[in-house]
Amino acid sequence: MTLPVAELSTENPIGPVGEGERKKIAGRSPTRIAIDRLRKDPIAVVCFAFVLLFVIIAVFAGTICDLLGVSTETVRASTRIDLVTLMPLKGPPNHGFDPEHPFGVAPGSGTDNLAVWIEGCRTSMYLASVSAILSTIIGVTLGLLAGFLGGIFDTVISFMTDLFLCFPFLLAALAVAPIINERFATDTAKLKFVSFYALVAILVFFGWMGVARLVRGEVLSLREREFVKAARVIGVPTHRILIREMLPNLIAPIVVSFSLGLPAYVSAEAGLSFLGIGVFGRESWGRSIAAATKYWEEYPLFLLEPVIGIAVLVVALNLLGDAIRDAFDPKTRR
């Protein structure tokens, strides 16, 4: 029996598919899909704008300070504060807005709060980014090796991961800071440099384990997949398999852990600086908070500025990180 011609033609359109149509059904990478989803997520967009703002402040700190006419330089305290009450002569908390010092000046020393805030933002962002990048690199490398090579590599790396996870981070920070300061005590310039990178080192040292575990788990399941097996069969070298076959498939978990790591480092730096073992010789929000807690009642703004800075940045980074995770997760549908 034959089918009528008319019916056949409707089922099978003749001729090549149009250009526009092909684009519509073209395969998109998971990253592309995630970015598209992010762009449609209002929270992600707002948070990204905030983060971008902080990044701009951090990168152009010096220029912004110059534009606003403020600086962290020490001035003679009595030119800006009342020696009887230790409170500013102009501006908050006892007087109106002072255009020369939009955030007011610090009680006691008279240093400009805005300049300190901007420099503190730079310290936080810089330290958090460097720490997050380094700990991600270390974590990914170790996770890849442990997961893919297995055997003794896996045993040793997993053991190290567990070991570092159970070592108390705060204790290590408390112990290391004075040792470094003592070692470089006589060279102030070097001390400033070393103490900053020592803090980065401590944060990285105790920050790579999460990424390493995550990556190792992913690799364990990936390495049994066909495309990896195929690559091995045709004799692709191990490093090439790791970089060209595995890594692209791990982008999602890495981006997620990086974006959630940033705010954690921001708050860790502030916490350590508050305890007096953080950065040294530079402004930092943690140090500002430590200085301001006593003045809460008399001069609330002094404490609120760094607190709000940290709160906004950390919340923005966290929400952005959450949004990225949701965007990368194929199981979430909104």
């Binding site: 020490t74 001035v75 003679r76 305290a77 610090a106 006691g108 020393s109 240093t111 800071a177 004075p178 300061n181 005590a185 006589t186 102030t188 001390l191 007096g276 073992i277 040294f280 010789g281 140090r287 500002s288 430590a290 200085a291």
Partner: peptide
């Protein structure tokens, strides 16, 4: 922070008064 702020003031005073100043932090 107060310790640092005070040291900065002291340094400024010395410098204004014709001294060259080197200060070492101790923690």
């Amino acid at each position: 922070p107060q310790g640092e702020a005070a040291a900065e003031q002291r340094k400024n005073g010395y410098e204004e008064s014709g001294f060259k100043v080197k200060m070492y932090p101790y923690t």
